[in-house]
Design a protein around this nucleic acid. Structure first.
Lengths: 134, 134
DNA sequence: GTAGCTGCAAACTCTTTGCAACTCT
DNA sequence: AGAGTTGCAAAGAGTTTGCAGCTAC
C-alpha cells in the first residue's frame, strides 16, 4: 500500500499531529477497525485526540477513496484500509473478518449483472460462518 | 409465501389488530420496506398505531425467521418478506432492488467457505449497477 | 383473570455539526 | 495572516425500553 501521509499531503490536506496519528494507525492496521477502535488506538498515541476528529478524518479519507467504509450486520461501521477488491468471511463466533479473493466469483458476478441487463459498478459478498474445528 | 397470520398464531402470538395490519402489509409488500415505510403504510390502515409497535413486531418476526433484516449501505434497515434465499441487484440510479437467484453462486460460496475452513451460516451478495439502455 | 401487547416518552447508540480556540503553511 | 483543523458539547437519526393501561385468550 502507498504511503498515506504522502497521498494526503499531495491532496492539499494539512498534516496535523492528529492526522498523522490516525494515518499511521490505518497504515499499520491488519484488521477492519471500527471508529471506536481507531479512536482507542489513537488515544494511546495522543490522549487529547477527540472522537469527533476521528469521525471527521475517516469520512474525509473515505471521500478521497483512501479507505472504504464497510457495514457488516453490526450497529456500527468499520473501515477497510485495503482498497484492493476483495470479499469478506466473517467469523460469527469471534467477529474476525478474513479477506479473500476469488476469480471465479469475479467472472460470475459480471455474468449475472449482464443477464439482468446491468452494468456492474460495485458489489459485495460477505460470508458469515463458524470455524470448523479440525 | 405461506400465510403469515397463521404462522404467528401457531407460534402462540396474540393476534392483535396492530399485528394483523403489519402482517398484511408485509404479505402484500413487493419491495424491501424500511421500518418507517411499514409504519407509514400501517398508519394508513390504523392511524393510532405506534412506531414502537412496528419496531417490536418486525424484530419479533425477524427472530422467528419470518422476515429478514437487510442493511444495504444506508443509515437504516429494511425488511425482506421473501425468505427464499436470493441476492440483490441495486440500481444505483433509481434505488430499485431486484432479487435474483443463481445456482452457480450457491455452489461457489460453499466451496469458498470450505476452502477457508468455515461452515457457512449465512451470506449476502449485493451487486450495485446501472441499467444498460438497449 | 392474566400474560402479553400497546402507546407514549424517555433513553440509548452511533454519527454529525456549530462554534470558539488553535495551528499548519 | 488566514484557511483549515480541532475539542467540546449539543443535536440528529435510528432504534430500544420502562411503564401504566389495555386486550386477546
Amino acid at each position: 500500500m502507498k504511503n498515506l501521509e504522502e497521498q494526503c499531503q499531495q491532496a492539499g490536506l494539512k498534516m496535523t499531529g492528529q492526522r498523522r496519528t490516525i494515518l499511521k494507525i490505518l497504515q499499520d492496521a491488519e484488521d477492519h477497525p471500527s471508529v471506536e477502535t481507531v479512536y482507542d488506538r489513537a488515544k494511546h498515541e495522543d490522549p487529547s485526540i477527540s472522537l469527533a476528529t476521528v469521525y471527521r478524518t475517516l469520512s474525509l479519507l473515505e471521500e478521497m477513496d483512501i479507505i472504504v467504509k464497510r457495514e457488516f450486520n453490526e450497529s456500527f461501521a468499520r473501515y477497510d484500509t485495503n482498497t484492493d477488491h476483495h470479499h469478506h468471511m466473517i467469523d460469527m463466533e469471534t467477529g474476525d473478518v478474513i479477506e479473500f479473493k476469488n476469480d471465479e466469483l469475479e467472472k460470475l458476478k459480471l455474468k449475472i449483472a449482464k443477464e439482468l441487463g446491468y452494468e456492474l459498478l460495485d458489489h459485495r459478498l460477505d460470508l458469515y460462518g463458524r470455524k470448523i474445528k479440525s
